[in-house]
Design a protein around this nucleic acid. Structure first.
Length: 308
DNA sequence: ATCCAGGTACCCA
DNA sequence: TGGGTACATGGA
């Protein structure tokens, strides 16, 4: 194989940055552009081509400063403390005992971190995600980047800017396999282009931020919540997709029959149940459930014989 | 071939 | 407010 770049840097995870699992983090459906070649992940962060690989408690990386690496992967977040918080919240609502399902989910997802990705890329990515599976989403975003993104080193393209997408022909966007989402992408790009501060973190705050995002075409509660969680790191936010709905419905049937009829649970029902049940890091819990979706649903793979 | 996927906009009661 | 439906496309 070709020689590896000369000046790789290392980051020791050992003191206070564990657990961390690079594979789980980059392959859990929160971000769609990273590619793995051998044991090396390549992607673009802050406009630079970055390569990272993990060797036990060490990250070997290039193309990014240590500070930016820490920020992107949220390496200073006390992930063990996050898990403890979720576990304690579950216990406080479970007088009979603890949640054995979630102990398995914790173990399977050990080291998965929610990263802090660029809001614009995250927004377009999750507009692209609607009513699609992850391989299709990846292809779609890859086509958008190769069609409209500025070419960089190593054959990689930058994520296209709002300006470029805003002035692109709808047919060109559509030819990136975006289907009916093409107009959403185009119109959202125009909104951001015309109001460059729209996605500024100080303007995307709390419930107002959610409403702001949902005012964009193609952005409903699910996409907005994904952006709030994956780009702005509002860890209490719980996006509800068909997998999460299926898992919650199956393992956590409605527990408050009083007052409420037995109508179908709405998006907000599921989301707020998770916020109550998992606590201030409910978004993390959600992502761990999503990562374990194949094992937790019948349609994922083979159904687990010991479950019913 | 048929069904489904990290949903949303739109319409109708 | 809540429930149905069209929407483009690819993966399984």
């Amino acid at each position: 194989m070709g020689m590896v770049p000369v000046r790789m840097k290392t980051f020791d995870l050992n003191p206070g940055h564990l657990p961390f699992d690079l594979d789980k983090t980059l392959d859990c459906g929160q971000v769609f552009r990273w590619e793995k070649e051998g044991d090396e992940w390549r992607g673009i962060v802050n406009g630079s081509l970055v390569s990272v690989r993990q060797k036990e408690a060490c990250l070997i990386y290039d193309g990014i400063t240590e500070d930016d690496l820490i920020a992107y992967f949220n390496l200073n977040l006390d992930l063990a403390g996050v898990i403890t918080s979720i576990r304690d919240t579950i216990s406080s609502g479970n007088p009979c005992g603890r949640d054995t399902l979630f102990e398995n989910v914790f173990q399977a997802g050990n080291g998965l971190r929610i990263i802090r990705q660029d809001p614009w890329e995250c927004l377009i990515s999750f507009i692209c995600s609607q009513n699609s599976n992850i391989p299709a989403i990846k292809k779609r975003i890859s086509l958008l980047c190769s069609s409209f993104g500025r070419a960089g080193s190593g054959g990689y393209h930058h994520f296209p800017s709002p300006e470029i997408i805003a002035q692109a022909d709808l047919s060109a966007i559509c030819s990136c396999k975006t289907g009916y989402r093409a107009s959403y992408i185009s119109e959202t790009a125009r909104r951001i282009r015309d109001e460059p501060d729209f996605l500024s973190p100080v303007r995307i705050t709390g419930e107002h931020g959610r409403e702001q995002l949902m005012s964009l075409p193609g952005v409903g509660p699910k996409v907005a919540d994904c952006v709030l969680l994956f780009a702005y790191n509002y860890y209490q936010v719980v996006p509800v997709d068909v997998w999460i709905r299926s898992i919650i419905t199956r393992y956590y049937p409605r527990d408050d029959p009083e007052g409420s009829t037995n109508r179908k649970r709405t998006y907000e029902d599921i989301s707020s149940f998770c916020q109550n049940y998992f606590g201030s890091y409910a978004g993390y819990a959600q992502q761990l459930l999503f990562a374990a979706r194949s094992e937790l649903t019948d349609t994922g793979k083979e159904p687990d014989p010991k479950e019913t």
